[in-house]
Design a protein around this nucleic acid. Structure first.
Lengths: 209, 209, 209, 209
DNA sequence: CATGAATGAGCCTTCATTCAT
DNA sequence: CATGAATGAAGGCTCATTCAT
């Protein structure tokens, strides 16, 4: 009871804090342009501290990437739980996707950047794959619930296919949004709606309001 | 503004040659890890000459990216022209997709890398967007022809949606392929087939062999 | 000037303990590659405590060097006391030299390292000189006793010369031993015997068994 | 004939130039305190150049060490050739040893430093061993010639023993000289003379003038 | 034209040292 | 007393870029 925090817990807290600064810097500059000095300047600490809490740059980036995951993965849980019918769920989903695109564009471009880096650097692969799997699960939560609410009878698409296709649409939208396209969000929502109708034909019968 | 005293044709030839070396190096190492020295070493020229033919590193990379486009964009023209029926076209498409994934994985991971860089560096955006548009057109060539051969009656998906969804599937497959998944290609082909059936329901009636 | 509130005895005990850890680390890595962190990790203490017990790195190293001296300087006392005749003393001396080379090679290379450092850093000079003097005395103990037992009549070499020459032979042997030469110890013993015969011609008359 | 120097030759020339700057810096600061930036500052170049001409720090140091050897190894050739009798040769030898100690103390302490480093760093061992062998040969040139001129009848000491013992004496003298002992050189000459008389008893009969 | 020598900023990392707790 | 968190200088090294030849 002398020490308010277990040392190890405090250590992890600081790691998380620095991981967050890393995330912000990576999101702002991209992997290729992010240096440890820049990260430290976006934190309350000197750059020497980074090597006190992390083995090396890779360790730091992986830690911050895991933080990204925790932040993303529960984003759609609430709307899945709360939605009363298919139309409402779809609408909430599209709205939240739009919010994400608008508010977290920086963070999401980082994700696509890191996923691309994982194609080159084996060190990133395991973590990136785990996050991708989590995102797939998250998307599937929505799609499966949507299917249930819409009373889908026929076969469902595989979770992998649903995620890949929806992610493809999101990625294109992000690209256009970052290029300054004002209609990127609205277009993304329309295309996502169209894609959902293809994935779950039952939705087409009861279109979203 | 360089005013080359070389005949302009030769100048462009050299640029192309160096662009090709750049492409190979980028594909092997990724944007973040590619240096001008490395590029020069993968070419027949010295390291200093790069700044004679290119303003700076960005100029060089953009040039090499444009070369990437030329290489990709006609890849599916032949099968569109030659296919006699929907089943044959789909089969040829899936086979060629598989070949691409197997034989040009390096080049394609570079594409995803550069597309991610374009989200950070405005200088890359115009070129990346143009290439993305070309790819979309290329994909649409196939999809539209497939629809025609299958005798699709109802509305077609938008070219943007078709491209985004198919690209999403390809990207996931590339990720798994590079991670060592032996079944990545086969899985990609199955998911692409499933996706095509969703995009063009008429295909489902006359499934590919 | 630190005024320790610990009993002075305990303070000195700690210094000795940390000096020992320093000695081990220096012997393992050499002066140029030894860091305070590494030293602390080879001790039972934390890295911060070093600056409580020592003014700075130099102070710590000097302390550990003095410990080295204490360890070495009595090494040949026993054989001088116990030997009954010249042949036995010489044999015991050579045997012990061999043991030293085999068992304490790490510590001895440290000595040569630190002696070289003293040529650059004035701070080391006084301590190194004192140790060198002690070693000279130690060697002379043996040589002088050997001379007495052999019944040497003529003039003796100076202690400084005897030490310098014997040390030169030892140093060469250590170098070869550390380079992996299996015969380094045996060669050293032969050369030392030859050198002793030159230093004390009386030995040649009654050669060691 | 266009280029006044063969490129490769020019490259080696620059390497030698930088090796020389390295040698000066090492001699001034010692291995543990020498940085590449410091070396560059003792040269006409920026520190980036060092990595253009040398693979890494070890490569640079090894190159400079090899230069040390070339400088040392012929130092006594002239006096061996020119000396007419044993007394003259011994006197010339002692005089040159004294000059060396006075004029090149810095360089010689570097040698002892690097020889100590070789006990820790395997990368240095081969070069250090080769130089040590050259020095032994150089010393033996003198000793053997001295023996011949003195008309030595009995067995000679091994070259290794002669070198080790003489080097031990020189090293002690260097230590004292660097510590400010004004009599270090004279003492060294006396002890060397004494050692030579022990090594070559024939010298004692015809003492040096 | 083309080379490769040279620069200097910047990168990741290590380190001795300080200091709040 | 002792810890370990934090600092900032310095280390080896890479890099895009410039420029004399």
């Amino acid at each position: 009871m002398r020490t308010p925090k277990v040392p190890l817990e405090k250590f992890e807290l600081r790691r998380a804090e620095l991981g967050e600064a890393t995330l912000q810097t990576l999101a702002a500059l991209g992997y290729a342009r992010t240096s440890l000095r820049e990260i430290a300047q976006n934190s309350a600490f000197s750059h020497g501290v980074l090597h006190y809490y992390f083995q090396d740059k890779t360790d730091l980036i992986l830690c911050s990437v895991r933080q990204y995951k925790a932040r993303c993965v529960t984003r759609y849980d609430a709307i899945v739980t709360e939605a009363q019918d298919a139309a409402a769920l779809q609408q909430a989903f599209l709205a939240t996707l739009g919010d994400t695109l608008r508010d977290e564009a920086m963070l999401h471009r980082l994700w696509y950047d890191l996923r691309a880096q994982a194609m080159f650097e084996a060190a990133f692969r395991a973590d990136v794959a785990k996050i991708d799997k989590s995102l797939e699960k998250m998307v599937w939560n929505v799609v499966a619930r949507l299917a249930a609410l819409a009373g889908t009878q026929g076969p469902l698409p595989s979770p992998a296919l649903a995620y890949a296709a929806l992610d493809g649409v999101f990625q294109q939208a992000l690209l256009r949004h970052l290029a300054g396209d004002r209609k990127a969000i609205a277009t993304m929502q329309q295309e996502t709606a169209a894609l959902l109708r293809l994935l779950l034909p039952a939705l087409a019968a009861a279109p979203a309001g």
